[in-house]
């Protein structure tokens, strides 16, 4: 296992790996999302309380999971960047942030669309909704900060520190519904006494979650390739300037 890591740690080798791997990841993503959408929209029952509105969940919940998952992986990458000064960690973190921000935005928007018919409001400032909104702001801050410096290593350093600070929001998001009274309902799937969601609704939810996970993997590899190519171009440009 550590051999694979060592092998991929080299940016140019990682570039070759990314180039050959991402089409497969894209394919897996498309298959799972098509299956999940078909199952969720046509083959799963309405809810006994919400009726058909429940189908928003098949986009909302996986997006919210991914918002947390992407941030968790960025936290690990930032740790690698700050302590072990790993050359790829910053690139992976920088390439993850926009994907995480999009997942967070999807979770916020679909949640709002679900909230209007179910709760009777688009938005409230309860602990869950507010902490997820803060996560979105941290993602946007990361995207801006990493590009705010002339020296890209300085930007990466600052962004890694921001990521570690912001990681304290993760347990707050997860447990906000248990620690405080919120309008948002508590967890249905990931909880101690087993899921409280019917199996016919669980299947499309899991299919979509796997699809979204591979969305992240595929687009991460695409973003990393762009990032490494840009870096190479920059080097060539500087070389040319020096020659002239």
């Amino acid at each position: 296992m550590s051999n694979i890591f060592n092998f991929l740690a080299n940016p140019s080798r990682f570039r070759i790996f990314a180039k050959s791997a991402y089409p497969y990841l894209l394919m897996i993503m498309i298959i799972f999302i098509i299956m999940g959408l078909w199952y969720g929209l046509f083959n799963s029952p309405p809810d006994y309380q919400q009726g058909e509105t429940v189908r928003i969940m098949y986009v909302h919940v996986p997006a919210a999971w991914m918002a947390l998952m992407v941030y968790s992986s960025m936290t690990i990458m930032s740790l690698f960047s700050l302590v072990w000064r790993h050359p790829l960690a910053d690139t992976l973190s920088k390439s993850s942030a926009p994907i995480g921000a999009v997942f967070t935005l999807i979770a916020l928007v679909t949640g709002s669309i679900w909230g209007k018919p179910t709760w009777g409001t688009w938005w409230v400032w309860d602990a869950r909704l507010t902490s997820v909104f803060i996560l979105f702001l941290i993602y946007m801050g990361h995207i801006a900060l990493v590009r705010a410096f002339e020296d890209e290593f300085k930007g990466a350093r600052a962004a890694a520190i921001l990521t570690l600070f912001g990681a304290f929001n993760l347990p707050i998001i997860k447990f906000s519904v248990d620690w405080w009274n919120t309008l948002h309902q508590p967890a249905s799937v990931i909880k101690l006494d087993g899921p409280s969601i019917h199996v016919d609704m669980m299947i499309p939810l899991i299919l979509m979650a796997v699809g979204f996970l591979f969305f992240y993997f595929a687009f991460l590899l695409i973003n990393v390739q762009t990032e490494l190519n840009q870096r190479k171009l920059k080097k060539l440009f500087i070389k040319n300037l020096n020659l002239n």
Partner: peptide, 18 residues
């Protein structure tokens, strides 16, 4: 002045609930 409905964490089809 304002009333919001709270949804619980149970999801199931109507037939199962019945």
């Amino acid at each position: 002045d304002r009333i919001l409905a709270k949804h619980d964490e149970n999801y199931m089809p109507p037939e199962v609930a019945d």
